[in-house]
Amino acid sequence: MSFRGNLLTVSDVRKAYGGVQAVNGASFSVREGTITGLIGPNGAGKSTMVNLISGAERAQSGSIHFANQDITRLPTHRIAHLGLVRTFQISRELQRLTVLENLLLAPQHQFGEKSWAALFARRRIQEEEQRHLRKALEMLDRFSLLPLKDEYAGNLSGGQKKLLDLARALMAEPKMLLLDEPMAGVNPTLTRSLQEHIAALNKEGMTFLLIEHNLSVVESICDHVVVMAEGRVLAEGKMDTLRDNEAVVSAYLGG
């Protein structure tokens, strides 16, 4: 694996709700081509961090850079345009869209998504749709969802929804994926399958920031791990060295 520069850099970011400092001066970065894990006990500020990076919420101070651009104050959709796409902790499939439509939604800057184009340029939309359709079918095939392509996404099982989340995010052709606990509430078989998918995608060059509770998963696939506690970055490094880090151990036990 070739490591290049930092794709994502979080610098001294803060966010408080009322009196509670959810993220309190956290800094870390994600190098291009890596799978970086973000772990920490409950209440460490991981979820808030995901929301800040993805633009769902705005940091009160500090800065976040992605691919050499300041994204601290950008709205979510602009961040996605730059190639940073997130998934959600609880699968949020678009229930009344079919599995295929969920995927077709994801490509960025679709010509057919303009209202006037829908009325006056149907031929060109048709061509674009066919192109995306081909790609979506390949993607569904890869994630073994092809037989379900015309099922409403709301009817999928929990595990299938997790796979759909990942496939849909990939259809957006991101530079980096921000996965918010993709293995939460998932059975061991599927955990392994998701893990393999992530590792394979990483081999193909995809960068990941993985928020995860399951430390053995983190240990087996992450190149680099960032530990958060009480809104700050407590330590970072390889998982096996972090296991011996006293601060990390006590944060987990204390949390």
């Binding site: 993805s54 633009g55 769902a56 709205p75 979510t76 959709h77 996605a80 345009h81 796409v85 997130r86 998934t87 959600f88 949020r92 499939e93 678009l94 229930q95 009344r96 869209l97 439509e101 077709l104 939604l105 994801a106 960025q108 800057h109 679709q110 010509f111 057919g112 998504e113 303009k114 209202s115 184009a117 829908a118 009325l119 149907r122 939309i125 674009e128 749709e129 849909r168 995010a169 957006a172």
Partner: peptide, 25 residues
């Protein structure tokens, strides 16, 4: 025409879950 186009698809996505639509750009 609006309903069946990718435009309509985005609207239906927003109806189902705004946050997901935003996360997809």
């Amino acid at each position: 025409a609006l309903y069946r186009s990718p435009y309509g698809r985005v609207l239906r996505a927003i109806r189902d879950d705004e946050d997901v639509a935003a996360a997809l750009g």
